[in-house]
């Protein structure tokens, strides 16, 4: 049986494209700060969510609703409403990070399946087992800081399913704990659902260079023949003493497609594709390729060669921590 493919949708049309392209499961969120992709023009109203879930169910696909930011003190009802709306829309599960919200969901929505978001950064068996015992979590999305061997070790000591990222934007900061973006913009992924929000991004052609700025800070300068970067601080090009380069991270994307057989052997249940902020064309293309890959692995055939590099940030890819050579 093929591994479950969990695919992104930022809009109802992207959800339909993912289903048509062969996604087993789609994850998406409401159009507010309850989800970690709170970008302009993206996400679902409650009505759109219910219609989209009905569409997916009609074609045998599941829908997971990401409510994976951390509720602001005093504003918890917004997150509680999102949980209730996800359940009434027919969601197959919710993806949560905050322990208060997990407790609320377990108490008030016991029939709604709970997955642990990558934002919770549960990266060892003790943490995962605690979430399972205390809140009835059935699946954990593992942080992108683990090797395949570490994932296998975790799976041997837990009773819940694991889901891992295999393609898309890569963030190797301690997940759920990065507030770097807020130093330049006042907004961060965990509180507001936005890392390096577009409202604070400015591009300017300056002579032969493209300057990419975040909150007034120049994060990159690229020549005409180089790929254009998105100005996230962690992937910025900085000068430190006499060296100029990507001090924290290179602007590359994750592509662990070649590791699918190893991840299957490590006991992983589901493979997750990042990219709710991308177009329906991207979603369809990536999902189609990964569906072919998981079917090939399940049938014992060689994996098809990838053709996804052009879709990646920086137009370059890495296997990230899964095959770690840099620790």
């Amino acid at each position: 049986m093929a591994m479950e493919l969990v695919c992104p949708a930022g809009t109802p049309s992207a959800l339909r494209a993912a289903v048509e392209a062969g996604a087993h499961t789609i994850y998406c969120g409401f159009a507010d700060e309850t989800n970690a992709r709170n970008f302009p023009g993206l996400n679902f109203s409650q009505e759109e969510m219910a219609e989209s879930i009905a569409f997916a169910h009609g074609r045998g696909a599941k829908v997971l609703v990401a409510i994976n930011t951390f509720p602001r003190a005093g504003a918890e009802p917004l997150w509680h409403r999102a949980l209730a709306n996800a359940e009434s829309s027919g969601a197959d599960a919710v993806i949560l990070a905050d322990i208060g919200l997990l407790a609320h969901a377990a108490e008030h929505h016991p029939g709604l399946r709970r997955h642990l978001s990558v934002q919770a950064a549960a990266a060892n068996p003790d943490a995962i087992n605690l979430y399972a015992q205390a809140f009835g979590v059935k699946r954990v999305v593992l942080p992108r800081v683990l090797t395949v061997a570490e994932i296998a070790a975790i799976n041997r000591e837990i009773d819940v399913e694991t889901e891992v990222f295999v393609f898309g934007g890569l963030c190797v900061m301690a997940e759920g704990r990065c507030s770097l973006s807020s130093y330049a913009t006042g907004k961060s992924p965990n509180m507001n659902g936005v890392c390096s929000p577009a409202s604070h991004v400015v591009y300017a052609e300056e002579g032969s260079e493209l300057a990419a700025r975040l909150g007034g800070f120049t994060i990159h300068r690229t020549k005409k023949d180089q790929p254009a970067p998105y100005p996230t601080l962690c992937k910025g090009c900085f000068t430190s003493e006499d060296q100029t380069g990507h001090i924290f991270e290179d602007p590359v994307s994750l592509d662990a497609s070649k590791l699918i057989p190893a991840l299957a052997r490590a006991g992983v249940t589901a493979l997750k594709i990042e990219g709710r902020q991308r177009s329906r064309a991207y979603v369809a293309e990536v999902v189609r390729n990964f569906r072919a890959a998981v079917e090939a692995v399940a049938a014992g055939r060689p994996m098809p060669e990838g053709m996804l590099a052009r879709l990646s940030e920086g137009q370059a890819a890495t296997t990230g921590a899964y095959a770690k050579t840099w620790r």
Binding site: P197, V202, E205
Partner: peptide
């Protein structure tokens, strides 16, 4: 075509209010 991919490859250029451009694209 995917707008982000066209932007990364420099086929598309965005100037001014990037948030508005993203909202329009989406």
């Amino acid at each position: 075509y995917d707008g982000d991919a066209l932007f990364f490859s420099r086929d598309l250029v965005v100037e001014g209010d990037t948030g508005a451009a993203l909202a329009l694209r989406n």
